[in-house]
Simulated assay, not measured.
Amino acid sequence: MINTTDYISGMLLGLSLIIAIGSQNAFVLKQGLKREHIFFICLFCALSDAILISAGVAGFGAVTARYPHLVDMARIAGALFLLVYGLQSLYASWRTSHALTVEGQVVTSLKKSLLLCFGFTWLNPHVYLDTLVLMGMVSTGASSKVVFASGAVTASFVFFFALGYGARLLRPLFAAPKAWNILDALVGILMLYLSWHLYHSS
């Protein structure tokens, strides 16, 4: 019989770790607003979380604890990635005129979108600390690590698909090009802040 307590605990912890606004979530929201490759972006994010959560629960957190320089390398690479993307977003907010009402408009290819999503996901050192270390540590108190991990993975799938497909509810607001420019500016500022925060974090 499935231990529902472990499942719910894993789900709640998973939601608490990914629900905060971050670079990855901002990117998923943006793709949802543009209706560009939403399914594949959400699937990539959820599967990436599933892999990391499974590794953390399986005990990979011990590896990062023993070799902390791996997290430092990811931190520097992530800071540089966020810096570049943040500057691009600020430039787009100033120079680009978006028209969300144009039918058939595709701004970014699937390949480029997935590469960007890869950067936001796998070059973010916090994701390793959250999934490999924290998730792995908390799972030690569960009677069934498999059930605990399943709950956390479920939370990731539900959250990312809800965020990606739920973004369409905001499309009327972003029908005006100016609103999209403001979003680009806010995303750019967020990316630059996260880049600064990663670079100066210990």
Rank of each mutant, 00 (worst) to 15 (best):
K112H: 10
I41H: 03
L83R: 11
L116Y: 06
A74Q: 10
I38K: 00
A162I: 11
K30T: 14
G56Q: 05
S139D: 08
F81R: 03
F161V: 06
A26S: 12
N181Y: 01
L115G: 01
Y193K: 12
S54L: 13
L110F: 04
M11E: 01
S97L: 10
T131D: 02
F159N: 01
K34D: 03
Y193V: 14
F118H: 02
G104I: 05
L183G: 08
V127E: 09
S48G: 14
N181S: 13
Y128F: 13
K30M: 12
S23R: 01
V187P: 02
A62T: 11
V28W: 00
A176N: 13
A176F: 07
F27D: 05
A20E: 03
V187R: 02
A62H: 12
F60E: 04
A99R: 15
I53S: 02
R75A: 04
F40Y: 08
Y7P: 06
S201M: 04
G32A: 00
R35W: 02
P172I: 14
L115P: 00
G141E: 05
P68Q: 08
T154R: 02
R171A: 10
I51Y: 08
L129H: 00
A77I: 11
F60Q: 09
V147G: 04
A50D: 01
G10L: 04
F174S: 06
L114N: 04
S201K: 02
Y91D: 12
L15T: 10
R95I: 08
S109F: 01
A99C: 14
V28E: 01
C42I: 02
I189H: 04
T5W: 07
I19Q: 12
T154E: 06
A55S: 10
C45V: 08
V28M: 03
L12G: 13
D6R: 07
A155E: 07
T108E: 11
L70M: 15
A65D: 13
P172W: 12
G188L: 01
K30C: 10
G14C: 06
L70K: 09
G61Q: 04
M137T: 14
S139Q: 10
A149E: 06
P172M: 12
L80C: 13
L80H: 04
G119Q: 04
A142I: 09
K112F: 06
I189T: 10
L90D: 07
L90W: 01
L13N: 03
L87I: 13
A99P: 03
L29E: 03
V84R: 14
C117S: 03
A92Q: 15
R35M: 08
L47T: 13
S54C: 12
G61D: 02
A65T: 12
